[in-house]
């Protein structure tokens, strides 16, 4: 999310802010032993499985890590397609 903020922001991030963001991601991946590529595959499979039960907005799915104190959490944000007006 912070990366997104930085991208949308007018201000150029300082190199230490970039270092912080890169470290946050790389540590999360190192700790969970999941590479970014693997996370993409996981996300695709998650979409396939959940779509079997409920219609979801596949493009809006976000699978990310969150960091607590020395624990990583995998968070999947899966927007559902509610109501017929949202159907394709």
């Amino acid at each position: 999310m912070r990366l997104l903020d930085l991208l949308l922001c007018r201000r150029q991030p300082s190199s230490s802010e970039i270092a912080h963001e890169r470290l946050r991601l790389v540590l999360a991946h190192d700790r969970a032993n999941i590479s970014p590529g693997m996370l993409d595959t996981l996300k695709d499979e998650l979409i396939t499985v959940i779509s079997r039960y409920v219609p979801i907005d596949a493009a809006g799915v976000e699978v990310t890590f969150t960091q607590g104190r020395r624990e990583s959490r995998l968070v999947a944000d899966i927007p559902l397609q509610t109501g017929k007006q949202h159907g394709q």
């Binding site: 912080h20 470290l23 946050r24 540590l27």
Partner: peptide
């Protein structure tokens, strides 16, 4: 360098490594 924003500060490193 920390002041200039070109080096990670102590608080950030401590927070990351916990």
């Amino acid at each position: 360098l920390v002041e200039r924003g070109d080096m990670l500060d102590t608080a950030t490193v401590v927070e990351l490594l916990a």
